[in-house]
């Protein structure tokens, strides 16, 4: 294992993050505050409670998931697309590194950044609502797993994308709707039965449900199923990346 290489990529990627640390910190704080003003105050005044939890608190896990998923994808996809775009990818391709080392470096950094943002949102949210976390370790585990798995997905998107439009396409057209329709701001039980069934095909539902369980011990689907879903998704992404590096698809001529 070329640990120096992993550490070098990780540190180099984190340096980009630290160069813009203020932006990285301020933007989630502002957007979270806005969500609380709009959803928490305006809508929350009409929906008092969802399954025994105040609506303001109820949306916190979904809100964190929403940002963390989007951030993980955009961080990781940009991290690998940018070197492809400016040509510096040659360096990684000609270095004595294997795909696992490259992935740990890039995806690790992308996941770290979104984890940081997730925690900032959690902190900001706790200023607006009373939050108690029933299973802090499980909460953290779900958060980390989500960061990693969606950073892996972003990594794939970054390799696949041939231009900046494509880089935006998947997050905008697929991920955003899935996250919004995944129960970020409501409980699935609030939907008509037909939609409840359809929703179960949305993988994000399992993430948010599991994450919400860690907070309130209340979930749409069983925790085991949530854990299985996210682990399966992570494994799928790793498999795809392994295949990409094996064939050199969109990386090596």
């Amino acid at each position: 294992m070329n640990t120096y290489a992993i550490w070098s990529i990780y540190r180099y990627e984190m340096a980009r993050f630290f160069r813009t640390i203020l932006q990285s910190f301020i933007s989630p704080v502002i957007s979270t505050s806005l969500y609380f003003v709009v959803f928490g105050t305006a809508i929350g005044s009409r929906i008092q409670e969802v399954e025994g939890v105040s609506y303001g608190a109820f949306i916190v896990p979904g809100l964190i998931m929403l940002s963390v998923i989007m951030q993980s994808i955009s961080n990781a996809s940009f991290a690998i697309y940018f070197p492809k775009f400016i040509g510096t990818i040659y360096e990684v391709l000609s270095a004595p590194v294997n795909f696992i080392e490259v992935v740990i470096g890039y995806v690790g950094a992308a996941a770290t950044k979104s984890l940081f943002i997730g925690l900032v949102i959690l902190g900001t949210a706790s200023l607006f609502v009373d939050l108690s976390i029933a299973h802090p370790l499980a909460m953290l585990a779900f958060l980390v797993l989500t960061c990693v798995s969606f950073a892996l997905m972003g990594f794939i998107i970054g390799i696949w994308a041939k231009n900046f439009e494509q880089l935006q396409l998947v997050p905008m057209l697929i991920v955003t709707p899935l996250v919004f329709l995944g129960g970020s701001f409501y409980s699935i039980s609030m939907l008509p039965p037909v939609w409840q069934t359809i929703t179960l095909f949305n993988p994000v539902v399992y993430l948010i449900s599991g994450f919400r369980w860690a907070f309130f011990e209340q979930s749409d689907v069983s925790v085991a199923l949530s854990l299985l879903a996210i682990t399966g998704f992570t494994a799928l992404c790793v498999g795809i990346i392994w295949l990409i590096f094996r064939t050199g698809w969109r990386l090596r001529d």
Partner: peptide, 16 residues
């Protein structure tokens, strides 16, 4: 946007 010494240092790290 990277400093000269950092980008040079990155390469050494990549080579383990």
């Amino acid at each position: 946007f990277e400093k000269v010494k950092n980008t040079v240092g990155l390469t050494r790290g990549l080579f383990g």
